[in-house]
Nucleic acid binder design. Sequence first.
DNA 1: GCCTAAGCTGACACATCGTCAGATCTCGAG
DNA 2: CTCGAGATCTGACGATGTGTCAGCTTAGGC
Lengths: 183, 183
Amino acid sequence: MLRTTSYRDVKVIDIAREAGTSPATFYQYFPDVEAAILVLAEQMAQDGHRLPVLIREGMWRGKAGLATATELCQAFFDFWEEYRSILRVMDLATEEGDRRFHQIRTRLLNEVNVALTETISQFQDASRSPRTIEPTATAAVLVSMLAHVAAHQYGFEFWGIRTKDLRDSMARQIYWGVTGQKL
Amino acid sequence: MLRTTSYRDVKVIDIAREAGTSPATFYQYFPDVEAAILVLAEQMAQDGHRLPVLIREGMWRGKAGLATATELCQAFFDFWEEYRSILRVMDLATEEGDRRFHQIRTRLLNEVNVALTETISQFQDASRSPRTIEPTATAAVLVSMLAHVAAHQYGFEFWGIRTKDLRDSMARQIYWGVTGQKL
DNA sequence: GCCTAAGCTGACACATCGTCAGATCTCGAG
DNA sequence: CTCGAGATCTGACGATGTGTCAGCTTAGGC
């Protein structure tokens, strides 16, 4: 229903109708509409475990590194495509201070963040470069980029920017952010 | 009201009460709640003109370039801080396919995008590097990063990531994305 | 076939929506 | 100052949605 109806207009009675039952039955399972969406969000977060795996199992050195970065971008695009309507509600709720959604969002993105932080740290240690920039912060910035571009993919196409170009451009930024190398 | 009440719970009757008038009067001015928020969003977009100015008037070469990038990040943080509650509604509405909000979002961010694209193109031309990466796409990716990190600034602090670190990390990514230089 | 517990829902009191007819106000012409 | 046209406001209302409860239905063990 979130795919076709705006969040604001999803009413308990609509959900009940769709489920072929009455509003009273809905309230037996959920205190409100948010609580029902929360369940969907939890299922989504489960599926999100595949994202950090890509980072940990991928190669990050040289050309293979750029390829891994590209795969990561593609995985984000795919994930957002699938869960777009839930993600946007989660984002709003999080921003509005809803702890329940914030927690799920954290579980989903923090894992990616941690995986990326580790990889960045490894490269910083290897190159013995002065750690002027926090790996955590860089990881956070890169994850933000991924999440936001994936979310607004369609909006960019509207401006005549191809998804493929976005992906490649983002992959380069990530490769650079992670390795510090120019390639 | 959007600062204290969730978007979903802002009712016409609340707005009317707040304004010391009746719902019927509200409907004389706006067809629905969204339309009223739209006006706030338009005012916000006006104020957004200051963002592309920073890009165009700033220096982008060398250390001054990094300073300009940092200023740009700070400006985004400040802007989002001021208009956080409107921006999150705008984002949701845009994602849900609302043309009116999409248009305002475009006006706001596209100007930044164009300014950044121009700057990137200048650097690519100067270095005669092969244009494998679309300047427009890179600009879009960077603007996304700015918008998203600014939006979730508070969420990051929750994870123990300092705003200052975010800003510096982002500034480096932008500097690199714009100039292609490592500094 | 009976009983129990789990699950469902009709009905209700209350809130909000969106509209319209008519009340009220404003302000310039006479 | 008075009047009236046009602008603005609002009470009232039917329609729709919310959240609760008591009572009904159903499944399954005995």
